[in-house]
Design a protein around this nucleic acid. Structure first.
Length: 543
DNA sequence: ACTCTGTCTCAAGACGAC
DNA sequence: CTAATTGAGACAGAGT
DNA sequence: GTCGTCC
């Protein structure tokens, strides 16, 4: 769509997301031997986000679009499992950044700084001050901003949610606008993309409930996923069975498939049964060495092997330790750091054989190691990095051993090691046993978050665009943030003009009764003028 | 040959003078 | 503890 | 359109 189509429309925007992007994108070019950095005022406070928000808002208003900015509240409870991963990642970036600084590696510094960008509470507060002075409404969401944006649209307070994040559709926003930054517009791929929720559901032939399930299957922020189920398969399964429950039930008839369902998705009962079974298998492995015999030897092709080596080496250099380990576990390849690297090329088949045999009961060679690591990550507390690395390290090392050690002396050694790692794992599981009985399958929690997210009802929100407070703006931007007075004055002039012309209503509101649109009436006929095919409306998220 | 998933890497604003 | 990403595109590998 | 600059 062209910008002009949205003249007079109210658009709800996730402010935190926007601020984050400004902080990443708006940087002063580093001089000689200096990394690019965010803009700051004399006190060293970040100002990039102020600059970005100020400009963009004026731009939107000038185009006749009325923005309402929605700020995040408290994060939802559920992100617990994911949280640990993110913390680990962040800590890693922090470390790398310091290393890069020590070495004076500009490129690396910039890269890792980008990964550490954050929007602090203060940054958000500053922007709220700015927006209020501009006469633009601000909404403080109790929880996730995307959910609140969706509510504003559903409740008719806004025409659409303006965000790149597909989650708003899962939150059932009536409409989403993407690429709202019509910068030097008119180019085909610069045009605003409108996605209509009802039409989307109609096109893919799902109810909203099913659509939510589909999004969960494809992978949302709140849950693990079923291995080997991506967008296509998920859609197929939902169409076939109608709900996640029905899909799980159907999968449960095939042990191989059911094994892919993450523990967290099972109800307490099934879950503890599965764990008991795992424990039994672990014990059996320890006591009965004959179990190690059967397997399928998947021979890697020579050239593939070379390729993986290459990747491993690279990862070892510039990635954290968890990743190469996980990689190795998944593929049964030998990690590059392994002491026995030399023998890899000559006896790949043997190595693979050994790795597979030691580890895993014949039915699912690759998934189990993955499951184990997920499990540990999910159950471990603050000290994630340590806990995760230990067992994986033991595992990986142990995979190597058989190549060099004689069977006879190998068995006792290996048993001892195994015992150690197994016990760690079991211990971790047991820590969780008290929660076990009240465990609710993860996908149900996610569903609840999408459908009953904490929000302020749209009817309780009044949005007003008022004349800017010129004095307040000058005080804030010039005196506090150190912006150039001349520029600010010029911008304020634009702002006043834009705000003034907002008073004019949309043309069609003079002769049409429906004010905001053909709402949520599911599958009512799609409005004629809508964008081309919302084929781009595939939900995808992999984290 | 084709389809799908999983993984990795990357980029992420806007103004205004020219 | 305060912080937080996201999506797209390219590509390899598994499965059919 | 590109490019340097915004703080």
């Amino acid at each position: 769509m062209e910008v002009e189509s949205y003249m007079g429309r109210i658009v709800a925007i996730d402010a935190s997301m926007a601020l984050y992007q400004f902080l990443i994108a708006i940087r002063a070019q580093g001089g000689e031997g200096t990394a690019a950095a965010v803009l700051t005022n004399a006190e060293g406070e970040q100002t990039s986000h102020i600059q970005g928000m100020f400009n963009r808002t004026i731009r939107l208003l000038s185009a006749g679009i009325k923005p309402v900015y929605v700020f995040d509240g408290k994060p939802p409870n559920m992100k617990g499992g994911e949280l640990a991963k993110r913390q680990a990642k962040r800590a890693e970036a922090q470390k790398k950044l310091e290393e890069a600084r020590a070495k004076g590696d500009i490129e690396a510094i910039e890269k890792h700084e980008g990964a550490l960008v954050k929007v602090s509470k203060k940054d958000a507060e500053d922007v709220k001050v700015l927006l209020r002075a501009m006469g633009v409404p601000v909404v403080e969401a109790p929880c996730e901003a995307e959910a609140q944006c969706a509510e504003l649209v559903r409740g008719g307070k806004a025409y659409a949610a303006g965000t790149e994040d597909m989650d708003v559709l899962t939150f059932a926003a009536t409409r989403q606008l993407r690429k709202l930054t019509f910068s030097s517009s008119k180019k085909a791929d610069q045009r605003i993309v409108e996605i209509n929720h009802a039409r989307l559901l109609n096109d893919i032939g799902l109810t909203n409930d099913q659509f939510v399930d589909l999004c969960i299957l494809c992978g949302c922020d709140y849950t693990n996923r079923i291995d080997k189920v991506g967008p296509k398969t998920a859609l197929k399964l939902i169409k076939q069975h109608g709900s996640i429950e029905a899909i799980l039930k159907s999968m449960s008839t095939s042990p191989k498939e059911y094994d892919r369902v993450p523990d967290e998705w099972l109800d307490a009962d099934t879950r503890s049964k599965r764990k008991a079974k795992r424990r039994a298998q672990a014990l059996a492995r320890l006591t009965n060495t004959e179990n190690r015999v059967p397997l399928e030897t998947t021979k890697p092709k020579e050239d593939n092997n070379a390729h993986h080596q290459d990747i491993d080496n690279k990862q070892q250099q510039d990635k954290n330790k968890i990743q190469p380990l996980a990689f190795a576990a998944t593929t049964n390849e030998i990690p590059a750091f392994a002491p026995t690297t030399q023998s890899v090329n000559t006896s790949t088949a043997e190595a693979t054989f050994a790795a597979t045999t030691n580890e895993i009961p014949a039915f699912a060679p690759t998934t189990q190691s993955v499951n184990i690591s997920t499990e540990i990550e999910a159950t471990s507390a603050p000290t994630t990095t340590e806990i995760v690395q230990q067992p994986l390290m033991t595992e990986a090392t142990e995979n190597i051993i058989p190549m060099e050690v004689d069977e006879d002396e190998f068995i006792p050694v290996k048993t001892a090691e195994l015992k150690e790692s197994e016990s760690t794992e079991i211990e971790l599981e047991e820590q969780n046993d008290e929660d076990e009985s009240k465990h609710v399958p993860e996908y149900i929690g996610a569903r609840k978050l999408f459908k009953e997210h904490e929000i302020i009802p749209a009817k309780d929100i009044q949005l007003k665009w008022t004349k800017p407070d010129e004095a307040a703006l000058r005080a804030f931007l010039i005196d506090k943030m150190g912006f150039a007075a001349e520029r600010v004055d010029g911008a304020i002039k634009k702002l006043i003009t834009a705000q003034g012309s907002l008073k004019q209503q949309r043309m069609d509101s003079f002769f049409k009764v429906l004010p905001k649109k053909v709402d949520g009436n599911v599958n009512k006929r799609p409005p004629p003028p809508a964008s081309k095919k919302p084929a781009a409306a595939k939900k995808k998220k992999t984290r």
